[in-house]
Design a protein around this nucleic acid. Structure first.
Lengths: 337, 337
DNA sequence: CCTACTTGGTAAAGCGGTTAACTTAAGGAT
DNA sequence: ATCCTTAAGTTAACCGCTTTACCAAGTAGG
């Protein structure tokens, strides 16, 4: 079933059918239009998107590139990814585009992919600064980065106030009377969200006159199992902490489990604060106090930029960061009480 | 940059370039081949997938259709979806296909979508029996259903032994001495996984001579928040239960929270068993005992069938169900101890 | 009556590939 | 010297759709 067949049945040319299909009504009488439409409905004809894309040079396809978490972990091992993807999917659908989802190790892998599919735009999740120039140079479609720090690069990035998040995390603990703090974090070496959170955290400590040394940092992967180990290390390590700040919720979940396994009770023996405010914070006990980011906001902002660039055929440069707050629950003890 | 340009630079026809691209080496000398390949590498040329699809009538696109959970809930509100999607994505990628993800309310919405994109195959998650014939009739590409019950329909379905899961759930509780059981479940009216689990559960009760009435069933949506309410209802309802079986983990999480809010401790005051064995079962306290299904297995089986049908251009009919077990953790009390 | 504009359409090129059918030159067999 | 094969390409049609340029007929103005 193709456009030719419809044209034949209607006794018109394919051009006319195409005009009806594309709403170019000025070229076709109401009568013919009605006739063609009824035939289309009757036959259930749907134009071939590929053929259309080929000539229109637009695909109505949006690429969504998700970082690969690690060997055995799928990209949902951190539920953060699931939530942001779900929110983006909604907006893509609402704008009548299609979502091509791809998980990649090296983000450069997907550049050929995006260009050979003629993707109209793409979201990149959690790309590091170093990888931005190459992506930018190899591809010239609208892109929105989420959670990328690349000052100086001309990109659209949507993120949160990570520095302030880290800062608030420390301030919150300090406000509850905690002064012996540990930090559990993935690598802080590369410029990125984690590094910013770390900086905010340590700055808050410094301001408050709280000694915070490198020895107080525990490095982990962004996975539950890796964090469990850290929780145990901290419990056994005798670091004499009263509170642990985690740079993501999934890590906090693991740390708490590690602590529990060693007989420590949260928050009575040890306080823990997370980062992300996943819905899962509610599922556990104690409920995890966490620095809150809003997935919905991120997805909305990111979509606004992407679709503006696509429809207006323009290049935007922006770095929007969502204001952040602490979602208080039960995992941090108030030492003043 | 298109195939003509490459052909020009190499001083050959587009057909020859195409042959190199498609590995039809019999038609081209090693010399020309090397030359063309070097030009391709040099220019970074990538063939346009749309154009290729148009003539080859295959798209290398796999559709993944995910049910829409409800008004305000995204499809990851139940993490089950996230895990199965992630696993499927891995297999799709490994087979060198591309994933088009689409969340839909009415599955019929996507039929035109799949056909106008010339998708080579599709996975449908959690479709009800009634919707199968229409899907089947409107679309003639290989499809694999996951978690669909449609006996008599000629489809490939990959699922788990839901009946046995429900049965084991009851057996497990009974084995621990529980006889006053409540069941928390989404709608059991429509034929589907939940109905099967329910049947297995009640059959096990009957076999054990345990009275189980309709009044012992509490209906909920498959969301956390809905289940919290049920937990409270049960706590306040004075139903005199010692154990609650939930037909999915996300529901169990909510129920436990509801119970907690009413001052009941799990498992001391009330035992709870879930269904799905999400990784999240580990995150909470007490850790949730749950009927275990294996996402990896499901995704692998589903992919095997789909890609076999695609490459062999054949129609298969199958109904594979993964054997199931109870993953024992801490949320069920042993009344005999 | 002639010209000009509008309405409702058609014909055909082209998007970037693939492929069946054809060509041409060289080599081998007879 | 002739015929057949094979290797290595080339030509051109076609996939399903959009779009530009063109056309015919009707209407209106002068």
């Amino acid at each position: 079933m193709n456009i030719r067949e419809i044209a034949q049945r209607a006794g018109v040319s394919t051009a006319t059918v195409s005009n009806v299909l594309n709403g170019k009504l000025s070229k076709v009488s109401d009568e013919t239009k009605a006739k063609i439409e009824s035939i289309i409905k009757e036959t259930g004809y749907k134009p071939n998107v590929m053929a259309r894309s080929l000539v229109k040079k637009e695909s109505r396809l949006i690429g969504l590139v998700v970082p690969y978490l690690g060997k055995d972990e799928d990209f949902f091992a951190n539920p953060y990814n699931a939530h942001i993807i779900a929110a983006l999917e909604r907006y893509i659908r609402a704008n009548d585009y299609y979502l091509m989802l791809r998980c990649v190790g090296d983000p450069r892998e997907i550049v050929p992919l995006l260009s050979s599919w003629n993707v109209d735009g793409a979201f990149f999740l959690g790309i590091y600064k170093d990888e931005v120039p190459e992506i930018k140079s190899l591809i010239d479609i609208p892109i929105v980065f989420l959670d990328t720090y690349a000052p100086g690069e001309e990109i659209v990035n949507i993120g949160i106030e990570d520095y302030r998040g880290g800062y608030l995390s420390a301030r919150y603990l300090i406000g509850k009377g905690h002064t012996k703090l540990a930090l559990v974090s993935p690598d802080i070496a590369s410029e990125g969200v984690i590094r910013e959170r770390y900086k905010g955290f340590t700055d808050a400590c410094r301001e408050a006159g709280i000694p915070f040394k490198n020895g107080n940092i525990y490095y982990t992967e962004s996975t539950y199992h890796s964090a469990v180990q850290i929780g145990q290390d901290i419990a056994f390590g005798g670091g004499d902490y009263t509170a642990i700040a985690c740079m993501s919720d999934i890590v906090a979940f693991g740390v708490i489990e590690g602590l529990k396994q060693c007989g420590l009770r949260v928050p009575y023996d040890m306080s823990v604060i997370g980062f992300d405010n996943l819905p899962d914070c509610e599922f556990m006990s104690p409920k995890l106090t966490s620095v809150a980011q809003d997935f919905e906001w991120k997805a909305r902002k990111a979509s606004e930029y992407l679709f503006k660039m696509i429809t207006d055929k323009c290049i935007l440069v922006a770095d929007e960061r969502q204001p952040i707050r602490v979602a208080e629950r039960q995992s941090v003890k108030n030492l003043y009480e």
